[in-house]
């Protein structure tokens, strides 16, 4: 078996950029005051969990070659629904969370059908569904903010530690478990491989006998489930929700998108990993904790996104330039004809 030589080159940096950036941020944390405290680690990872759920859904759909921009509104709707059902209908938290998650599944199903059966571009369908979700939210809560009231049982549980010696909130651990579950699906199941294949080349996938429509619908459903479940849990974790969540400051949706790109998910589909996105989002969460100014957070995250996009574009251009070429043929020819230098 040929032994791979380790080379610290541009390809290596690019391949592992999310991990390297996380390490970089953590090293910078050594010089920041009160950065490595259990409270800070627990708070940063907990507060960053919602974006991880959104990034997860967005990544899967992006790998499948589409774009689900409803994740932010879906998560807000799930949060409002969960809090509203518990406050008004007095339903237990678990049931409220399940209903919130199921609403996410329904949203994903509708998105999938719009994209595959009605052949509406995912971008357009997403904008339409965003408006629908926004309207539904306004009708549901009449513009008011909903909260957990005085029932702190699940709020304390999600904010608290699941494993006493580990400075991580229960909410973050649930998020991590879900992420690894989806990673297993994507990496080791037929559905996961099909999602990659459909995203890489839909025509080839169809010729290979893959039911592309079903695969795309499944990707949207997983995305909807992540947004619904993540949003429902986040509503309880943060204690309140309102319709305009995420519309001010740094939108969680844009953070999720940035993390996908920084993580290395191909914006044209076919390549990507939820683990890359996960690591990138943790990196962004710690980056936000490092820079206390919102303006700096926006600037740095935006600059990282632009640089990654430029890199991806240049790399794709270079790949396309040599696509189909066999530069070694000339060397082989020279060798065979004895003219090699």
């Amino acid at each position: 078996m040929e032994k791979k030589n380790f080379k610290l080159n541009a390809a290596f940096i690019n391949r592992n950029r999310s991990y390297l950036l996380l390490v970089l941020i953590m090293i910078c944390g050594l010089f920041a005051k009160n950065f490595y405290t259990p409270y800070n680690i627990q708070a940063v990872t907990g507060n960053g969990s919602l974006v991880i759920w959104l990034g997860l859904g967005f990544t899967i759909v992006l790998i499948a070659g589409h774009m689900d921009m409803t994740v932010m509104y879906m998560s807000t709707f799930a949060a409002l629904l969960t809090l509203g059902l518990h406050a008004d209908q007095k339903l237990p938290w678990l049931l409220c969370v399940i209903i919130g998650a199921l609403m996410g599944v329904l949203n994903g199903l509708i998105m999938g059908l719009l994209v595959t059966k009605l052949k509406i571009h995912a971008f357009i369908a997403s904008i339409g569904m965003q408006l629908v979700l926004r309207g539904v939210m306004y009708v549901y809560c009449n513009g008011k903010e909903l909260s957990i009231g005085k029932d702190y049982t699940w709020n304390d549980m999600l904010n608290g530690k699941l494993i006493p010696f580990l400075p991580l909130s229960t909410y973050f651990i649930i998020t991590t478990i879900f992420i690894f579950g989806v990673m297993v699906i994507l990496r080791y199941t037929r559905l996961g491989r099909n999602i990659h294949m459909v995203g890489g080349n839909a025509e080839t996938a169809w010729l290979a006998g893959i039911k592309s429509d079903m695969v795309v619908i499944a990707a949207f459903v997983i995305s909807g489930l992540a947004a619904g479940l993540g949003g429902a849990l986040n509503g309880i974790y943060s204690g309140a929700a309102n319709v305009t969540m995420g519309e001010k400051g740094i939108s969680p949706f844009y953070m999720a998108f940035t993390a996908c790109v920084i993580g290395g998910t191909d914006i044209y589909g076919g390549k990507g990993s939820v683990i890359w996105t996960y690591v990138s989002l943790i990196m962004i969460a710690f980056l936000k904790a490092l820079c206390k100014s919102t303006e700096l957070q926006v600037l740095v995250i935006g600059a990282a996104l632009v640089l990654c996009l430029v890199y991806e574009t240049v790399a794709k251009y270079n790949r396309d330039k040599v696509l189909g070429r066999r530069p070694n043929l000339y060397i082989e020819y020279k060798n065979e004809t004895g003219n090699a230098k």
């Binding site: 970089l24 910078c28 980056l287 740095v300 640089l307 240049v314």
Partner: peptide, 26 residues
Amino acid sequence: MMKKSLAILLSGTMLLSAAFMTGCGG
């Protein structure tokens, strides 16, 4: 060459930004 430059630029920018930020509180 271009790829390498961009990768280094990305890492460098992040490093500088993060180092700058650690020194910038509220």
